[in-house]
Simulated scan of single mutants.
Amino acid sequence: MRIVFVSNVVYPFVTGGAEKRIYEIATRLASSGHEITIYGRHFWDGPEEMEYDGMTLRAVSPEREIYDGERRSISEALEFSKDLVVPLRRHIDEHDIVVASVFPFFPVLSSKLATVLTDTPLITTWHEVWRSYWDGYLGTLAPFGKAIEHITARTPQYPIAVSGITADRLAEIGPPRENIAVVPNGIDAAQIQRVSPATDGFDILFAGRLISDKNVDILLEAFDRVASRFDATLGIIGDGPESETLRAKATNLTHSDRVTFLGFLDEYEDVLAHMHAADIFASPSTREGFGITYAEAMAADCTVIAADHPESAASEVIGEGGYLASPTVEGVADALERALNGERPAQAPTERAKKFDWDNVAKRAETVYQRTL
Protein backbone atom coordinates (compact mmCIF):
# COMPACT_ATOMS: atom_id res chain seq x y z
CA MET A 1 0.00 0.00 0.00
CA ARG A 2 1.00 3.62 -0.59
CA ILE A 3 0.04 5.27 2.70
CA VAL A 4 -0.05 8.96 3.61
CA PHE A 5 -0.06 10.14 7.22
CA VAL A 6 -1.19 13.72 7.85
CA SER A 7 0.11 15.40 10.99
CA ASN A 8 1.19 18.99 11.53
CA VAL A 9 3.88 17.77 13.95
CA VAL A 10 6.29 14.97 13.09
CA TYR A 11 8.10 12.64 15.50
CA PRO A 12 10.94 12.62 16.58
CA PHE A 13 11.40 16.32 15.72
CA VAL A 14 8.39 17.08 17.93
CA THR A 15 7.59 14.63 20.72
CA GLY A 16 4.05 13.72 21.66
CA GLY A 17 1.76 10.73 21.84
CA ALA A 18 -0.14 11.16 18.56
CA GLU A 19 2.94 11.82 16.43
CA LYS A 20 4.87 8.99 18.10
CA ARG A 21 2.02 6.61 17.22
CA ILE A 22 2.32 7.62 13.57
CA TYR A 23 6.09 7.12 13.62
CA GLU A 24 5.97 3.70 15.27
CA ILE A 25 3.26 2.35 12.97
CA ALA A 26 4.67 3.99 9.84
CA THR A 27 8.25 2.76 10.29
CA ARG A 28 7.05 -0.80 10.83
CA LEU A 29 4.81 -0.67 7.77
CA ALA A 30 7.71 0.76 5.76
CA SER A 31 9.87 -2.16 6.89
CA SER A 32 7.12 -4.49 5.64
CA GLY A 33 7.34 -3.02 2.16
CA HIS A 34 4.64 -0.35 2.24
CA GLU A 35 5.37 3.08 0.79
CA ILE A 36 4.98 5.73 3.51
CA THR A 37 4.71 9.51 3.12
CA ILE A 38 4.14 11.95 5.98
CA TYR A 39 2.73 15.42 5.29
CA GLY A 40 3.58 17.86 8.07
CA ARG A 41 5.24 21.08 9.09
CA HIS A 42 8.94 21.59 8.33
CA PHE A 43 10.27 20.81 11.82
CA TRP A 44 13.28 18.84 10.59
CA ASP A 45 16.66 20.07 9.35
CA GLY A 46 17.15 19.50 5.65
CA PRO A 47 15.06 19.92 2.48
CA GLU A 48 11.28 20.19 2.51
CA GLU A 49 11.08 16.66 1.12
CA MET A 50 13.50 13.99 2.24
CA GLU A 51 13.82 10.33 3.16
CA TYR A 52 13.89 9.49 6.86
CA ASP A 53 13.82 6.03 8.49
CA GLY A 54 12.40 4.45 5.35
CA MET A 55 9.67 7.08 4.93
CA THR A 56 9.25 10.21 2.84
CA LEU A 57 8.77 13.41 4.83
CA ARG A 58 7.00 16.15 2.87
CA ALA A 59 6.73 19.62 4.43
CA VAL A 60 3.69 21.54 3.28
CA SER A 61 3.95 24.34 5.84
CA PRO A 62 6.83 26.04 7.71
CA GLU A 63 7.82 25.32 11.30
CA ARG A 64 5.66 27.17 13.82
CA GLU A 65 4.86 27.11 17.54
CA ILE A 66 1.80 24.87 17.97
CA TYR A 67 0.78 26.09 21.42
CA ASP A 68 -0.69 29.42 22.42
CA GLY A 69 -0.05 29.40 26.16
CA GLU A 70 -1.57 26.23 27.64
CA ARG A 71 -3.78 25.53 24.62
CA ARG A 72 -3.18 24.39 21.08
CA SER A 73 -3.07 27.31 18.66
CA ILE A 74 -6.19 27.58 16.53
CA SER A 75 -4.47 29.85 14.01
CA GLU A 76 -1.66 27.30 13.61
CA ALA A 77 -4.13 24.52 12.87
CA LEU A 78 -5.98 26.66 10.35
CA GLU A 79 -2.75 27.66 8.59
CA PHE A 80 -1.51 24.08 8.31
CA SER A 81 -4.88 22.92 7.02
CA LYS A 82 -4.88 25.65 4.38
CA ASP A 83 -1.34 24.77 3.30
CA LEU A 84 -2.14 21.05 3.13
CA VAL A 85 -4.96 20.97 0.59
CA VAL A 86 -3.13 21.77 -2.66
CA PRO A 87 -0.02 19.58 -2.19
CA LEU A 88 -2.08 16.61 -1.05
CA ARG A 89 -4.51 17.02 -3.91
CA ARG A 90 -1.65 17.36 -6.40
CA HIS A 91 -0.13 14.05 -5.29
CA ILE A 92 -3.32 12.17 -4.41
CA ASP A 93 -2.99 9.71 -7.32
CA GLU A 94 0.34 8.60 -5.82
CA HIS A 95 -1.34 7.41 -2.61
CA ASP A 96 -3.75 4.57 -1.86
CA ILE A 97 -5.01 5.80 1.51
CA VAL A 98 -4.78 8.92 3.66
CA VAL A 99 -4.54 8.57 7.47
CA ALA A 100 -5.17 11.82 9.38
CA SER A 101 -4.88 12.42 13.13
CA VAL A 102 -8.07 14.06 14.30
CA PHE A 103 -6.86 16.70 16.73
CA PRO A 104 -6.81 19.63 15.90
CA PHE A 105 -9.66 18.66 13.50
CA PHE A 106 -9.04 21.10 10.65
CA PRO A 107 -6.45 18.89 8.87
CA VAL A 108 -9.08 16.15 8.67
CA LEU A 109 -11.42 18.50 6.84
CA SER A 110 -8.58 19.56 4.52
CA SER A 111 -7.66 15.93 3.86
CA LYS A 112 -11.28 15.20 2.98
CA LEU A 113 -11.34 18.15 0.61
CA ALA A 114 -8.18 16.85 -1.08
CA THR A 115 -9.70 13.39 -1.58
CA VAL A 116 -13.12 14.52 -2.85
CA LEU A 117 -14.05 12.92 -6.20
CA THR A 118 -11.29 10.32 -5.81
CA ASP A 119 -11.31 6.69 -4.68
CA THR A 120 -8.73 7.37 -1.98
CA PRO A 121 -10.13 6.44 1.45
CA LEU A 122 -9.72 8.86 4.34
CA ILE A 123 -8.92 7.11 7.63
CA THR A 124 -9.02 9.11 10.86
CA THR A 125 -7.45 8.34 14.23
CA TRP A 126 -9.45 9.49 17.25
CA HIS A 127 -7.45 9.69 20.47
CA GLU A 128 -10.25 11.35 22.44
CA VAL A 129 -13.73 12.77 22.02
CA TRP A 130 -14.04 15.84 24.21
CA ARG A 131 -17.73 16.76 24.29
CA SER A 132 -18.29 18.70 27.54
CA TYR A 133 -14.54 18.93 28.21
CA TRP A 134 -14.52 21.84 25.75
CA ASP A 135 -16.24 23.98 28.38
CA GLY A 136 -13.19 24.00 30.63
CA TYR A 137 -10.69 24.05 27.77
CA LEU A 138 -12.06 26.95 25.70
CA GLY A 139 -14.46 28.69 28.07
CA THR A 140 -16.67 31.06 26.09
CA LEU A 141 -15.33 29.58 22.84
CA ALA A 142 -16.44 26.06 23.83
CA PRO A 143 -19.41 26.02 21.40
CA PHE A 144 -16.92 26.56 18.56
CA GLY A 145 -14.83 23.56 19.67
CA LYS A 146 -17.90 21.37 20.06
CA ALA A 147 -19.19 22.35 16.62
CA ILE A 148 -15.89 21.54 14.89
CA GLU A 149 -15.70 18.21 16.72
CA HIS A 150 -19.23 17.32 15.58
CA ILE A 151 -18.56 18.39 11.98
CA THR A 152 -15.37 16.32 11.90
CA ALA A 153 -17.15 13.29 13.37
CA ARG A 154 -19.83 13.48 10.68
CA THR A 155 -17.40 13.91 7.79
CA PRO A 156 -17.33 10.73 5.65
CA GLN A 157 -14.35 8.70 6.86
CA TYR A 158 -13.10 5.35 8.09
CA PRO A 159 -12.65 6.09 11.82
CA ILE A 160 -10.20 4.38 14.15
CA ALA A 161 -10.43 4.92 17.91
CA VAL A 162 -7.61 4.13 20.33
CA SER A 163 -9.99 2.50 22.80
CA GLY A 164 -13.51 1.14 23.04
CA ILE A 165 -14.60 4.01 25.28
CA THR A 166 -13.36 6.55 22.73
CA ALA A 167 -15.23 4.63 20.03
CA ASP A 168 -18.41 4.73 22.13
CA ARG A 169 -18.08 8.50 22.62
CA LEU A 170 -17.49 9.02 18.92
CA ALA A 171 -20.58 7.00 18.03
CA GLU A 172 -22.68 9.42 20.10
CA ILE A 173 -21.83 12.31 17.76
CA GLY A 174 -20.86 10.67 14.48
CA PRO A 175 -20.62 7.30 12.73
CA PRO A 176 -22.36 4.13 13.96
CA ARG A 177 -20.36 2.20 16.55
CA GLU A 178 -20.03 -0.85 14.28
CA ASN A 179 -18.22 1.29 11.71
CA ILE A 180 -15.51 2.37 14.16
CA ALA A 181 -12.40 0.19 14.38
CA VAL A 182 -10.35 0.06 17.57
CA VAL A 183 -6.55 0.05 17.33
CA PRO A 184 -4.90 0.88 20.67
CA ASN A 185 -1.87 3.01 21.31
CA GLY A 186 1.34 1.12 21.87
CA ILE A 187 4.63 0.75 23.70
CA ASP A 188 8.07 -0.57 22.89
CA ALA A 189 8.05 -3.40 25.42
CA ALA A 190 11.62 -4.44 24.68
CA GLN A 191 12.91 -0.89 25.20
CA ILE A 192 11.07 -0.60 28.52
CA GLN A 193 12.39 -3.91 29.77
CA ARG A 194 16.01 -2.99 28.92
CA VAL A 195 15.97 -0.01 31.29
CA SER A 196 17.64 -0.45 34.68
CA PRO A 197 15.73 0.57 37.84
CA ALA A 198 16.43 4.00 39.33
CA THR A 199 18.68 3.85 42.38
CA ASP A 200 16.55 6.48 44.16
CA GLY A 201 13.16 4.94 43.39
CA PHE A 202 9.86 4.84 45.31
CA ASP A 203 7.43 2.14 46.41
CA ILE A 204 4.53 3.89 44.68
CA LEU A 205 4.78 6.06 41.58
CA PHE A 206 2.56 8.47 39.67
CA ALA A 207 3.55 9.89 36.28
CA GLY A 208 1.41 12.26 34.27
CA ARG A 209 0.25 15.80 33.78
CA LEU A 210 -0.78 17.48 37.03
CA ILE A 211 -4.35 18.45 36.16
CA SER A 212 -7.55 18.00 38.13
CA ASP A 213 -8.78 14.97 36.14
CA LYS A 214 -5.74 12.96 37.25
CA ASN A 215 -6.94 13.12 40.89
CA VAL A 216 -3.45 13.27 42.36
CA ASP A 217 -5.00 14.97 45.41
CA ILE A 218 -6.97 11.77 46.06
CA LEU A 219 -3.82 9.70 45.64
CA LEU A 220 -1.97 11.87 48.17
CA GLU A 221 -4.66 11.44 50.83
CA ALA A 222 -4.99 7.72 50.13
CA PHE A 223 -1.24 7.27 50.41
CA ASP A 224 -1.19 9.17 53.71
CA ARG A 225 -3.63 6.65 55.17
CA VAL A 226 -1.47 3.62 54.43
CA ALA A 227 2.10 4.96 54.37
CA SER A 228 3.09 4.33 57.99
CA ARG A 229 1.84 0.73 58.07
CA PHE A 230 4.04 -0.23 55.15
CA ASP A 231 6.94 2.21 55.51
CA ALA A 232 6.07 3.27 51.94
CA THR A 233 7.24 6.18 49.77
CA LEU A 234 5.48 8.01 46.92
CA GLY A 235 7.06 9.68 43.91
CA ILE A 236 5.14 12.15 41.71
CA ILE A 237 6.51 12.69 38.19
CA GLY A 238 5.02 15.49 36.11
CA ASP A 239 4.07 19.12 35.99
CA GLY A 240 0.98 21.13 35.21
CA PRO A 241 -1.49 23.74 36.45
CA GLU A 242 -2.22 21.80 39.67
CA SER A 243 1.44 21.52 40.65
CA GLU A 244 1.58 24.27 43.30
CA THR A 245 -1.74 23.26 44.85
CA LEU A 246 -0.67 19.62 45.10
CA ARG A 247 2.72 20.48 46.58
CA ALA A 248 1.01 22.63 49.21
CA LYS A 249 -1.42 19.81 49.99
CA ALA A 250 1.44 17.34 50.39
CA THR A 251 3.14 19.52 53.02
CA ASN A 252 0.04 19.17 55.20
CA LEU A 253 -0.01 15.38 55.11
CA THR A 254 0.93 13.43 58.22
CA HIS A 255 3.57 11.63 56.18
CA SER A 256 4.67 14.50 53.99
CA ASP A 257 8.30 13.43 54.38
CA ARG A 258 7.50 10.29 52.39
CA VAL A 259 6.27 12.20 49.30
CA THR A 260 8.63 13.54 46.64
CA PHE A 261 7.70 15.70 43.64
CA LEU A 262 10.20 15.11 40.85
CA GLY A 263 8.66 17.54 38.35
CA PHE A 264 8.83 16.92 34.62
CA LEU A 265 11.63 14.55 33.58
CA ASP A 266 13.19 15.40 30.22
CA GLU A 267 14.42 11.89 29.51
CA TYR A 268 11.80 9.22 28.81
CA GLU A 269 14.13 6.52 30.11
CA ASP A 270 14.34 8.31 33.46
CA VAL A 271 10.57 7.85 33.81
CA LEU A 272 10.91 4.18 32.83
CA ALA A 273 13.71 3.74 35.37
CA HIS A 274 11.40 4.96 38.14
CA MET A 275 8.67 2.62 36.91
CA HIS A 276 11.11 -0.29 37.18
CA ALA A 277 12.08 0.75 40.70
CA ALA A 278 8.46 1.03 41.89
CA ASP A 279 6.26 -1.84 43.03
CA ILE A 280 3.04 0.06 42.33
CA PHE A 281 1.99 2.56 39.69
CA ALA A 282 -1.09 4.51 40.80
CA SER A 283 -3.06 6.95 38.67
CA PRO A 284 -6.73 7.37 39.67
CA SER A 285 -7.48 9.51 36.61
CA THR A 286 -11.14 9.79 35.66
CA ARG A 287 -10.56 10.94 32.09
CA GLU A 288 -8.38 8.72 29.91
CA GLY A 289 -8.94 8.24 26.19
CA PHE A 290 -6.41 5.41 26.43
CA GLY A 291 -3.82 5.67 29.24
CA ILE A 292 -0.38 4.82 27.83
CA THR A 293 1.35 5.11 31.22
CA TYR A 294 -0.63 2.09 32.43
CA ALA A 295 0.78 -0.06 29.61
CA GLU A 296 4.31 1.29 30.21
CA ALA A 297 4.10 0.58 33.93
CA MET A 298 2.84 -2.96 33.34
CA ALA A 299 5.76 -3.58 30.96
CA ALA A 300 8.02 -2.48 33.84
CA ASP A 301 6.24 -5.08 36.03
CA CYS A 302 4.37 -2.61 38.24
CA THR A 303 1.08 -3.46 39.86
CA VAL A 304 -1.15 -0.79 38.31
CA ILE A 305 -3.97 0.92 40.22
CA ALA A 306 -6.38 2.95 38.09
CA ALA A 307 -9.82 4.49 38.48
CA ASP A 308 -13.00 2.61 37.71
CA HIS A 309 -14.84 5.38 35.90
CA PRO A 310 -17.05 5.62 32.76
CA GLU A 311 -14.83 8.36 31.27
CA SER A 312 -11.64 6.30 31.56
CA ALA A 313 -10.35 3.55 29.26
CA ALA A 314 -8.14 2.20 32.08
CA SER A 315 -10.14 -1.02 32.39
CA GLU A 316 -9.47 -1.80 28.71
CA VAL A 317 -5.77 -1.27 29.13
CA ILE A 318 -5.01 -3.06 32.39
CA GLY A 319 -7.58 -5.86 32.11
CA GLU A 320 -6.60 -8.35 34.82
CA GLY A 321 -3.05 -6.99 34.90
CA GLY A 322 -3.86 -4.46 37.61
CA TYR A 323 -6.58 -3.17 39.92
CA LEU A 324 -9.45 -0.76 39.39
CA ALA A 325 -10.46 1.39 42.32
CA SER A 326 -13.25 3.82 43.02
CA PRO A 327 -11.76 7.32 42.46
CA THR A 328 -12.20 8.17 46.13
CA VAL A 329 -9.72 8.34 48.99
CA GLU A 330 -11.22 5.18 50.50
CA GLY A 331 -11.19 3.27 47.21
CA VAL A 332 -7.62 4.14 46.30
CA ALA A 333 -6.38 3.51 49.85
CA ASP A 334 -7.93 0.02 49.81
CA ALA A 335 -6.26 -0.78 46.49
CA LEU A 336 -2.91 0.53 47.72
CA GLU A 337 -3.20 -1.61 50.84
CA ARG A 338 -3.88 -4.74 48.77
CA ALA A 339 -0.87 -4.10 46.56
CA LEU A 340 1.45 -3.14 49.43
CA ASN A 341 0.48 -6.39 51.17
CA GLY A 342 2.03 -8.18 48.20
CA GLU A 343 -1.17 -9.17 46.41
CA ARG A 344 -0.54 -9.51 42.68
CA PRO A 345 -3.06 -9.19 39.81
CA ALA A 346 -4.60 -12.29 38.23
CA GLN A 347 -2.56 -11.73 35.05
CA ALA A 348 1.15 -10.91 35.15
CA PRO A 349 1.50 -7.22 34.22
CA THR A 350 4.37 -7.89 31.80
CA GLU A 351 2.24 -10.46 29.98
CA ARG A 352 -0.68 -8.03 29.69
CA ALA A 353 1.65 -5.33 28.36
CA LYS A 354 2.61 -7.46 25.34
CA LYS A 355 -0.84 -6.77 23.88
CA PHE A 356 0.24 -3.17 23.35
CA ASP A 357 3.66 -3.73 21.84
CA TRP A 358 4.05 -1.59 18.71
CA ASP A 359 4.64 -4.66 16.53
CA ASN A 360 1.18 -5.97 17.42
CA VAL A 361 -0.43 -2.53 17.11
CA ALA A 362 1.09 -1.98 13.65
CA LYS A 363 -0.30 -5.30 12.43
CA ARG A 364 -3.78 -4.34 13.64
CA ALA A 365 -3.52 -0.96 11.93
CA GLU A 366 -2.35 -2.58 8.69
CA THR A 367 -5.38 -4.89 8.72
CA VAL A 368 -7.76 -1.92 9.11
CA TYR A 369 -5.98 0.05 6.37
CA GLN A 370 -6.23 -2.86 3.95
CA ARG A 371 -9.91 -3.32 4.74
CA THR A 372 -10.70 0.23 3.59
CA LEU A 373 -9.46 -0.66 0.11
Rank of each mutant, 00 (worst) to 15 (best):
K146V: 06
G331D: 06
D93V: 14
W126F: 09
E149W: 07
K363V: 15
S196R: 09
E269Y: 12
A365M: 15
M50C: 13
R229S: 03
V216G: 12
P121D: 02
I38W: 11
Y52V: 10
R131I: 12
F261H: 10
G238Y: 09
A346V: 11
V98T: 07
R287Y: 12
N215H: 11
S283D: 01
R41C: 07
H276D: 04
F13E: 03
I204Q: 04
L253V: 02
A307N: 05
Y39K: 02
G186F: 04
A171G: 14
R364C: 06
T37I: 13
K214T: 09
A277E: 10
D266W: 04
D168N: 14
R28K: 11
F264P: 00
V99E: 09
E70S: 09
R89N: 12
L246Q: 10
D301Y: 03
R194K: 12
T140D: 15
A314V: 01
K354E: 15
Q347P: 00
N179W: 12
D188C: 06
A153W: 10
R352I: 04
R90C: 09
R90V: 11
T140K: 15
E63Y: 05
T286S: 08
P197F: 07
T27M: 03
H309C: 02
D231P: 00
W130S: 00
F105T: 04
V317P: 01
A142R: 11
P175Y: 06
T27V: 14
R344M: 07
L210H: 10
T233C: 07
P87E: 12
V86G: 11
K214I: 06
R225W: 02
E51Y: 13
E288K: 01
V259G: 08
K363P: 00
R194D: 14
F261M: 05
G174L: 08
H274E: 08
C302I: 06
Q157N: 07
E244R: 15
G139P: 15
R58K: 15
D213P: 00
G319M: 06
T367D: 15
L340Q: 03
T120Y: 07
A207E: 05
